[in-house]
Design a protein around this nucleic acid. Structure first.
Length: 318
DNA sequence: AAGAGGGGCAACCGCCTGGTC
DNA sequence: AGACCAGGCGGTTGCCCCTCT
């Protein structure tokens, strides 16, 4: 089945954007907000494809974009994230506020790739070129894996044959589920859509599919597994002095110790009554989104931000 | 000073996914 | 269930600019 073009290509401009076009787009979005990119060009008086407008806004015009060179910290973070996620630029961007997937992708291809090669590392596998297992290293979780199997890594394993995974290879240590998230079992975690061992008592260990330990010692990923600030609060949920507590979970916990959906939070103490949901970003030490309500995360500003924090936040530490 | 070559990056293309009807 | 649509994503292209000769 063919698809109709996203816009009438015969009457659209292409190539570099002019200042006038930028201003029209900015003004329109300031007035009406983002969304409905298909109809935006006509409404804004732009002879552009809706997709082109979206790209221009997201990659260049958005006011919260960070301009300038990448810092050494950002470099290291990108390398870490790429080693875990592969070319999932949008996920990586979700972890770097103010940076876009396109920017990171370009930066990777023009700078970091070369940097790693200079260190004798394969930029795709993050292993030394002479590593005998370099070719065996598969990409980390794919977007498709994540989207198709949001319940737990057990389901992801089913997508990623072979399914038996008993070791966490992206880090230099194995993760004991109970140790990495000791309170999951004591806070009545719902596991309504998957029963493939997410809350077992015998402490199963996991690894990211396709990754092994071999060669990892050559790259100090400095990954840590630990409880986040918010998890710490949840751990104290029985204490009367706690300001908030987890009262429900939309989904099961991951073996990484994260929830796949925003956590439902009941505020107690001085904030009583301001119940809502909290983005997993909070687990990384960020603030709860405004008024504690669910929806778009005020920190990451994008859905992929949720994903990144949900899936690998704890691996990176808070 | 001018042309060649390469790097950097904005923008485009085509495919995928999720939502709706 | 499947067709359709909008939005989103990763890969690639092509232009501009800088450096080198």
């Amino acid at each position: 089945m063919g698809r109709s073009p996203c816009c009438e290509k015969a009457h659209t401009n292409k190539g570099a954007w002019t200042k006038d076009e930028d201003h029209r787009l900015i003004d329109y979005i300031r007035l009406h907000g983002e969304g409905c990119w298909r109809s935006l060009p006509k409404s804004a008086g732009l002879l552009r494809c809706g997709k082109s407008c979206r790209l221009r806004w997201i990659n260049y015009l958005r006011p919260d974009l960070k301009r300038g060179n990448f810092t050494e910290e950002e470099d290291q973070l990108i390398i870490k994230l790429h080693s875990l996620l592969g070319n999932k630029w949008s996920l990586i961007a979700g972890r770097l506020p103010g940076r876009t997937d396109n920017e990171i992708k370009n930066y990777w291809n023009t700078h970091i790739k070369r940097k790693l090669i200079g260190r004798g590392l394969d930029p795709q596998t993050h292993r030394p070129f002479n590593s005998p297992t370099a070719n065996e290293t598969a990409a980390a979780l794919t977007t498709a894996d994540v989207k198709k199997s949001p319940e737990c890594l057990g389901c992801v394993k089913a997508v990623n044959n072979p399914p038996i995974i008993t070791q966490f290879g992206a880090v230099s240590q194995t993760i004991d589920f109970n140790n990495s998230y000791p309170d999951v079992t004591s806070t009545k975690v719902k596991s309504d859509s998957c029963n493939s061992g997410t809350t077992t008592d015998d402490g199963p260990t996991y690894r990211v599919p396709g990754q092994t330990n071999m060669g990892q010692e050559d790259i100090n990923l400095e990954l840590t597994i630990g409880l986040s600030k918010f998890q710490g609060e949840a751990r104290n949920s029985t204490a009367s002095s706690a300001e908030s507590r987890v009262v429900g979970l939309n989904s099961s916990p991951s073996p990484f110790g994260l929830f796949y959906e925003p956590m439902k939070v009941e505020m107690v103490g001085s904030n009583k009554g301001q119940n809502g949901e909290i983005c997993s970003c909070s687990e990384l030490g960020f603030e709860m989104n405004s008024k504690g309500q669910g929806g778009c995360c005020s920190n990451c500003q994008r859905k992929s931000g949720y994903l990144i924090s949900r899936y690998i936040g704890p691996l990176l530490g808070s």
